[in-house]
């Protein structure tokens, strides 16, 4: 049973993957809200800036983004730790996709709700925080769940900027043992287990958000 001996190293890699994924999701979510809200509520300059960010990071390859931040940016004197670079780039990438989810959900809140808020003399901030966002977040959650799992899978690319994540460990072990079947099977199981956990957590969040009678509609998917 040679594969048992791979487990400690793979587990260490999985921890790095989990950490990078969770950090990227957290930072990415903040970026998604900031850029998504800026797109909808910002003035022309602010929303254009947010649009540029979104399209730039959606329109280019994550791998090239990683290389650019890791190899090109240091040439102008800006450099981070590999892990910090990985988290930052991954967060920027999924934040761009997330901002589209936020924007879409915000604009899906009905005009009637906004008119009711206006008739009650709510200011723009109050309308956003107390009327629009609480309704929009419910709509965002299923898409955010998908994006969270996407983030986990995309995180494997950070192995290419020398971060010892699950994929990186798997490559190393395979190079030593040449046991491709065993190592990569275990790696797949590892990613799948982690995505199952993510999926479960997102489901719980969704159920929690839809608790009570406010949103009686059945949860999506």
């Amino acid at each position: 049973m040679p594969w048992v001996s791979y487990l400690p190293a793979l587990a260490q890699g999985a921890l790095v993957t989990a950490w990078i994924t969770l950090a990227a999701i957290a930072i990415g979510a903040v970026l998604a809200f900031v850029a998504g809200i800026a797109r909808v509520e910002g003035g022309r300059a602010v929303s254009t800036l947010a649009l540029c960010y979104t399209e730039l990071f959606r329109g280019t390859s994550l791998l090239v983004q990683l290389f650019w931040f890791y190899y090109a940016l240091p040439l102008v004197g800006i450099s981070f730790e590999p892990v910090a670079t990985g988290i930052l780039v991954l967060a920027l990438h999924v934040g761009a996709y997330g901002s589209e989810i936020v924007r879409g959900a915000l604009t899906s809140v009905s005009v009637q709700q906004l008119e009711a808020a206006r008739a009650l003399n709510f200011g723009r901030m109050h309308t956003l925080i107390h009327v629009t966002l609480p309704q929009a977040i419910i709509e965002m959650l299923p898409a955010f769940g998908n994006l969270a799992i996407e983030t986990l899978k995309l995180s494997s690319l950070v192995s290419l900027i020398s971060i010892a994540d699950l994929t990186f460990r798997a490559q190393s072990i395979r190079n030593l043992t040449l046991d491709s079947a065993g190592v990569y099977s275990l790696t797949l199981v590892g990613y799948f287990a982690m995505s199952l956990v993510l999926m479960l957590v997102m489901r719980l969040i969704e159920r929690w958000a839809r608790r009570g009678a406010a949103f009686p509609r059945a949860a999506h998917s």
Partner: peptide, 16 residues
């Protein structure tokens, strides 16, 4: 607006 209130055809209550 502080002097005016409105009741809409489709109620427009805040569902949440």
């Amino acid at each position: 607006r502080s002097h005016v209130g409105m009741v809409f055809q489709s109620f427009n209550l805040f569902p949440h």
